[in-house]
């Protein structure tokens, strides 16, 4: 399997995950979207030194992984490219912020180290929450939910069409790459002199396809507004999920759960 085929297979895995059946999968996409956004906002609102306050926020993704049956391993495998970037965000903090703010026995920990760990954890938590949303919700439903909260329609349409056509484009790229290698045996990668025409060809093909797709849309009554069919109305369970989720996040944000638990053991 070459790289392109692997990429296509990975795309398929996400569809398979989102098509599974669980109580999380069956929730309204709007509810999941709202809770995910609330989670991300609350996670990001933690102070840079509040690492202990942030740790209990792990509870939510752990719960979702358990209930939805989505393997944690799959999450980290899918996020393997983005995770290092997220981790790198706070990498220089220990050099700039050297004030000691914590002592664990004889070990002194600077503010920079704490803020670096906090930033890393925030990134990981936000990525996990986003992954869980996509892995438990078909993409068209996410788009429908985004439109329902008045997310700009052009952006949502772009997202939807990108999702639909990323596979087609990847397949075209795979065919072009294969055709190139068949006529350039033994060559590793694509020679720099061919990059221009290679990308140009891909662009021209994409433009042709875009015109055809637009025509197909117009011929079926498209008037610059996608009307999504997939979603049902909000049910009690969706309201309950949203309320429980947001209340839990607020509780974890404003009540020092780690401190409370710690004090139980210290006494």
């Amino acid at each position: 399997m070459n790289k392109m085929e692997k990429a296509l297979a990975e795309l398929g895995t996400m569809d398979e995950l989102s098509a599974r059946k669980s109580s999380i999968h069956s929730l309204h996409a709007g509810a999941k979207l709202l809770v995910t956004v609330a989670y991300i906002v609350i996670v990001m609102s933690f102070h840079k030194y509040d690492l202990s306050g942030l740790i209990p926020m792990l509870l939510w993704p752990v719960l979702l992984f358990q209930i939805s049956g989505i393997p944690v391993r799959t999450c980290f495998y899918k996020l393997r490219i983005v995770l290092p970037l997220v981790m790198a965000v706070g990498l220089f903090n220990p050099f700039f912020d050297r004030e000691i703010i914590l002592r664990v026995g004889s070990l002194s920990v600077s503010g920079g180290v704490i803020s670096m760990l906090t930033l890393m954890l925030k990134g990981v938590l936000c990525l996990m929450a986003s992954f869980l949303l996509v892995a438990t919700t078909p993409f068209d439903r996410i788009c429908a939910a985004l439109r329902a909260v008045h997310f700009p329609k052009t952006l949502v349409t772009l997202l939807l069409l990108t999702y639909r056509y990323v596979g087609v484009l990847t397949r075209e790229l795979a065919v072009m790459t294969e055709a190139y290698h068949l006529r350039a045996p033994g060559q590793k990668g694509i020679h720099i002199s061919a990059w221009g025409s290679f990308l140009g060809q891909l662009l021209l093909r994409s433009m042709d396809r875009a015109q055809e797709i637009y025509a197909a849309m117009l011929l079926r009554g498209y008037d610059r507004e996608f009307r999504y069919a997939a979603e049902r109305r909000f049910a009690m369970k969706d309201v309950a999920y949203t309320l429980i989720g947001v209340s839990l996040f607020l509780l974890l944000r404003f009540v020092n759960v780690s401190g409370l638990l710690g004090s139980l053991f210290v006494r």
């Binding site: 078909p138 993409f139 068209d140 939807l160 069409l161 999702y163 639909r164 056509y165 087609v168 396809r209 055809e212 797709i213 197909a216 849309m217 999504y228 069919a229 997939a230």
Partner: peptide, 13 residues
Amino acid sequence: DSDDQMFMPTVYD
């Protein structure tokens, strides 16, 4: 080319 025709994610959509 049916890929141009079928621009939504699923057959139902």
